[in-house]
Design a protein around this nucleic acid. Structure first.
Lengths: 225, 225
DNA sequence: CAAGAATTTTAATACTTCATGAAAAATTCG
DNA sequence: CGAATTTTTCATGAAGTATTAAAATTCTTG
């Protein structure tokens, strides 16, 4: 449940701030670059989930940046959304084959910005997702229905408890420490003390019984194999 | 083994050739029209499975073409994907009302063109394959007549409410989050806050009773299995 | 078996989410 | 056009959830 990372590249600092602020408010992790070169560097280092790229920039424009990205086997996978000013001349529309995922004309409403970005991300949503139904020892954890079944009794756990259980059960036998669980289930950028995990474990056990999750003292928790 | 037919309408012959070439390569049967009027003629004669429509065209623009198509009982069923040049944001809003299925901003890579078209066709096909009558626990939802029957009492729900209910009921047991519901029931390109879903759910419950749709806190809604 | 360390449990508090009512905006239809 | 209906937004409070702190318990090890 890590936050989605977005890289914004624009030479106008004000706009960078504005966009950054709104994307953060919408729950994204944002990094910014003030020119194309820095943008490429950051992209390589961070591997963001989406790049928002201004076309008109001095030195290296957005299209050039995009061309560089496309040459990298990993970076080429990342969806790119272009920002363009209204009235900018067409840039060889017919021959360009850049792989833009969307275009947003400046100025753009923040609502629209966010929802367009959501739409693009949605299209890219990873298909390599975990199997949504985990079964073992008479327990069935169904992420499609958000229902846990133990010996034909159904339980509805609250979101965090369900996701914690699901995460553990998807990795049967593996001991996971608290920090890992926090990172993976809660998300990287959340500030929560690790005792919180204990309490959730306790609540899960309270509901479905304590034979499924084992404690490994000094290390973490493990779903019974 | 009929090929899927796509009609491309654009006034720029080069672009028409480029798109046509790539769609054919992707296994589609392609026909082209160089202006809106010819496009409509061809659509009537051929009944394509999808229409790719440039917005900016002389004489009759893409929006006008679409409006004509919408007046025809048969043609209105065909999904329309718009091609829009950068900076034509305003137009986009209008086309939403027309029931556009997607937007492609020029310039677009041919790979993306094809994959987006595939996505639209997939989505469209799915809805065709849905059984138009869903029954469960004394409720019958009939999409042919747009009537819901609960214990022999008939209800006529407004469009959005009906479609939301139908969508949920067609996926019994599956938890659907608000964003998915918005995308699937409202459409990809619409900007509506997700609390809207809540209100519609409430109206549905108000009318047919609240035993059918369950709330999964923090996740979404689910039709009782 | 006692001390220290780690976990479990309890309980209090802060935080989220959703249902609801009402009103504004958009759409439909006469 | 204008009234009726539908759709969307907004504000609020109640219910449910998550988090923290702290006390009780269990476990480990010398």
């Amino acid at each position: 449940m890590n936050k989605v990372k977005i890289l914004v590249v624009d030479d106008e600092e004000d706009l960078l701030d504005l966009i950054s602020y709104n994307l953060k408010k919408a729950g994204y992790e944002v990094s910014t670059a003030i020119n194309g070169k820095k943008g490429i560097e950051l992209a390589k280092r961070q591997k963001p989930d989406l790049i928002l790229l201004d076309i008109m920039m001095p030195e290296m424009n957005g299209i050039e940046v995009c061309e560089v990205l496309m040459r990298d086997e990993i970076l080429k996978q990342i969806p790119v959304v272009f920002l363009t000013a209204r009235g900018e001349e067409e840039i060889e529309v017919k021959t360009l084959d850049l792989g833009a995922d969307d275009f947003l004309a400046k100025p753009i409403s923040t609502t629209k910005l966010v929802s367009r970005i959501k739409a693009v991300l949605r299209r890219y949503k990873k298909s390599e997702e975990e199997n949504p139904i985990v079964e073992a020892h008479g327990i069935k954890i169904d992420k499609i229905r958000y229902i846990v079944t133990v010996d034909n009794t159904e339980y509805t756990l609250p979101k965090k408890e369900f996701e914690l259980l699901f995460y553990l059960a998807s990795r049967k036998g593996k001991v996971l420490d608290r920090q890992t669980l926090l990172n993976e289930v809660w998300g990287n950028n959340i500030y929560v003390i690790d005792r919180t995990v204990d309490v959730h474990i306790r609540k899960i056990r309270e509901k479905i019984g304590d034979e499924f999750i084992e404690t490994v003292k000094g290390v973490g928790y493990r779903f019974k194999e």
